[in-house]
Write a protein that binds this DNA or RNA. Structure first.
Lengths: 103, 103
DNA sequence: AAAATTGATCTACCAATGCATATCAATATA
DNA sequence: TATATTGATATGCATTGGTAGATCAATTTT
């Protein structure tokens, strides 16, 4: 029901929230208006590739075009890079820094 | 100098030609006009994500959003899935089927 | 309770995509 | 040589993204 893949939208939103960014934060850093980001994340817009790339850059993401037959291997890599096991078991850090640490 | 990443455009064109599709073939299969495909491949258009996905689907490609830190690993996988060694040495098939084989 | 954040929504307006169609030069094929 | 294919371009037009604001309900924070 949306122009963009659900997965793509999920990834966008997850990357944003996991960085602790609000839509307004992302807006300030990417130049894309908050109202537009809201529409994008809700799948209500068939955004242009340049916009997607602009958002991705701020979120330390990269846009890829990969052969379908390699998607499982790639997803496995992505999951592990997020610190999540293939089984779906998340690896928790041994300790956690306080809220406001400098980077 | 283009809205879309050079890499993305390269991948598109390479996938098309390696499938033996002309721009008109791709147009017929994807629904995207040939004139538009031409502009897209030359980087002269900031196309919408749905268009990119439509083209990708026909070319057996998938659009991805991956963490930057995993790009090397992913590129390695993609290269190998294309039958190319990490060193850049292409692996040739042991034999080659005739031009007009059924799939 | 009061103030600040957050995401969703709305209104305009402008620029650009995307579509349909046709053409053209260059190359390949009959 | 005549024909067909390929990629690049051109035009006109409708649609939609994108921007710049502002507002609002729901939470959070002070």
């Amino acid at each position: 029901m949306s122009y963009v893949t659900e997965q793509l939208l999920e990834d966008l939103r997850e990357a944003r929230t996991s960085k602790g960014f609000s839509q307004r934060d992302l807006s300030a850093r990417s130049g894309v208006p908050q109202s537009h980001i809201s529409k994008i994340e809700s799948g209500g817009v068939d955004l242009r590739v340049s916009s997607l790339i602009a958002l991705a850059r701020v979120l330390d993401l990269e846009l890829f075009l990969a052969p379908k037959k390699s998607i499982t291997a790639i997803n496995s890599i992505i999951r592990s890079s997020k610190g999540i096991q293939d089984e779906g078991e998340e690896i928790l850090p041994a300790y956690r820094l306080d809220d406001d640490c400098d980077e």
